[in-house]
Every structure is written in structure tokens, then in C-alpha cells.
């Protein structure tokens, strides 16, 4: 009996690590490929894309850093992404609270329509977005990007936040009502704090979208004052020729903040939350 247990235990361990390592390599391979190729020349890349550099070229990184106004682009990306995340998560949690914890007619309809927005391929809406933004008079400004990023992510955030808020036990709120908490306090004291890991997840997705977006930034801005770092990467793709390896270097550089944001925002906050979470 004991023997059988340890045997199955060992095979379970092997199975477990096979799964973990498969996905680990699937996730790491592109990154390593990108990193190695960012030190190679374009000709080397054309000859074979799976080899170490003949000489490790730092020139690609130098070129990447020389891209016009990289600090400004970084600053714009940070402002646009973080503002969009804050707005998006705040308003989605307000609405999510009403849609998950209140009972009224039309609630399900609103929820269904709003979340059906996840289906929308945003490219289909480019013309109306362009006219909307120009009519609002915010073309070529960070406000345009913030507004679009915060809005485009509403369906996903509503989806995640509402379903998360629903899973909070009703008893907690009922207890709060007995203690004299009103509508606003039920949100601010009970539901909002308890759904923070859902909020962080939604915020992470919103951040990733905003940070990686290229097409909206290209469409809705024209000058450097409101352009984001993803456009900086594209300075290596010109009319006919793409300097891939320098672009890879630029991608590595621009990834650092988003990885950093993920590690800090997500890992730290979630770990902190679960450590002190109220058990349901």
C-alpha cells in the first residue's frame, strides 16, 4: 500500500513537472530567441534564426535607445496606461458592484450587453472612433488614448469584476447592513476591499492592452507629444525595409516596464491580499 502510494506519488510528480516545464519552455523560448537575436545582425538573422551571435552586437541597443525621444515616449506610455487602468478599474468596480450585488429590473440586460463588448474586434470601429475623438476635440492628445484605453477595456473588466464580486458571500453584506451600513459603505467597506484580487486582474489586463497597443496610438495621435513607446519600436520598420534585430532590442527595452509592472502590481498585491484576506 505504501509502496503503491509512493509510486503513484512519483509518477504524479513527473507528470506535474512535465506539464510545468513544457509550458515554461513554451513561454521562455520566444523571449530567449528575441534576446539572442537582439544581439545579432540582420544578415545573420536571415541566414539562420536559430544560432548564437557571431559577435555579440550592442549596436542594436544603442540604435534602439537613439530612437527619437524615447524617454518622452516612455513617459507618455506610462501616463496613458496607468491613467487608463485607474479609470477603468474604478468605474468598472462601481458598475460591477451595482450589477452584482443589487437586484433590479434590467440588470441582466445591462450586464449582457456590456459584456458582449468582449466580442468586438476593435479594428471594425476605427472610423467611428476617429470621428468621435476628433469631435471631442482631443485628437493627438494623451486624453484621447486614456479615454479609448479605459473604454475599450470596459467589457473585459466588467466581466471579470462582476463575476468576482458575485462570488463574495452575501452573509458578509447582510451583516454589514445590520451594522447600519448603507449603499455606499457596502461598496467601500465590504465589496470593494474583498474583490481586490479581481480588480488587480482586470487592471493587469487593461494595463497590458494599453501598454501594447499600437494601432490606436497610431490612429489617434500625430505628433510626439502624445505618442507612445510602441510607436518607437516601429521606427525600425520603414517603407520597405525592417531592421529586425534593432527592433528586437527595442522590444526588449520596452518590455521591461510592463514586466516590472506585472511583477509588482500583480505578484506583490495578490500575495499581500491573500496573506491578509478575509476568509469567506
Amino acid at each position: 500500500m505504501k509502496h503503491a502510494f509512493s509510486l503513484s506519488h512519483i509518477s504524479a510528480q513527473i507528470l506535474k513537472w512535465t506539464v510545468l516545464l513544457f509550458f515554461l519552455s513554451a513561454a521562455l523560448f520566444p523571449l530567449v530567441w528575441l534576446l539572442i537575436n537582439s544581439f545579432r545582425s540582420n544578415l545573420e538573422l536571415q541566414i539562420t534564426s536559430f544560432a548564437l551571435p557571431e559577435r555579440w552586437l550592442i549596436g542594436n541597443y544603442e540604435r534602439a535607445l537613439q530612437v527619437a525621444s524615447l524617454p518622452r515616449l516612455f513617459f507618455n506610455s506610462i501616463v496613458a496606461s496607468f491613467s487608463a487602468v485607474i479609470i477603468n478599474v474604478l468605474i468598472s468596480s462601481l458598475a460591477g458592484f451595482v450589477l452584482s450585488r443589487e437586484v433590479f429590473k434590467g440588470r441582466d440586460t445591462i450586464y449582457t450587453i456590456v459584456t458582449a463588448g468582449v466580442l468586438i474586434p476593435i479594428i471594425a470601429f476605427m472610423v467611428p472612433y476617429f470621428s468621435l475623438i476628433t469631435k471631442l476635440g482631443i485628437y493627438d492628445s494623451l486624453s484621447a488614448l486614456i479615454l479609448v484605453y479605459a473604454s475599450v477595456n470596459i467589457p473585459v473588466s466588467m466581466f471579470l469584476i462582476t463575476s468576482f464580486m458575485r462570488s463574495i458571500p452575501k452573509e458578509l453584506e447582510e451583516a454589514a447592513i445590520i451594522d447600519g451600513c448603507g449603499f455606499v459603505q457596502r461598496f467601500s467597506k465590504i465589496v470593494f476591499p474583498l474583490s481586490q484580487s479581481g480588480l488587480v486582474t482586470a487592471g493587469t489586463f487593461c494595463f497590458i492592452y494599453s501598454w501594447n497597443d499600437f494601432i490606436m496610438a497610431m490612429l489617434l495621435t500625430s505628433g510626439l507629444s502624445a505618442r507612445t513607446v510602441q510607436l518607437g519600436i516601429k521606427f525600425f520598420t520603414s517603407q520597405f525595409i525592417t531592421d529586425y534585430t534593432s527592433m528586437f532590442a527595442a522590444i526588449i527595452i520596452t518590455m521591461i516596464p510592463s514586466v516590472g509592472a506585472y511583477v509588482f502590481l500583480h505578484n506583490r498585491i495578490i500575495s499581500g491580499l491573500t496573506a491578509g484576506a478575509v476568509k469567506g
Binding site: 470601429f125 472612433y129 479609448v148 479605459a150 473604454s151 475599450v152 467589457p155
Partner: peptide, 20 residues
Amino acid sequence: FLSPVLILFAGFFVYPFFFT
């Protein structure tokens, strides 16, 4: 509580949808 989401959703989803 609902209005910020509804306003933005109307602007960025409902209006473009009817346009399309």
C-alpha cells in the same frame, strides 16, 4: 455608480455598433 461605465460604453461601443 453605473453612469460612468454606461456613458463610455455608449460612446465607444453602442454608437460605433449602430454606425457599423
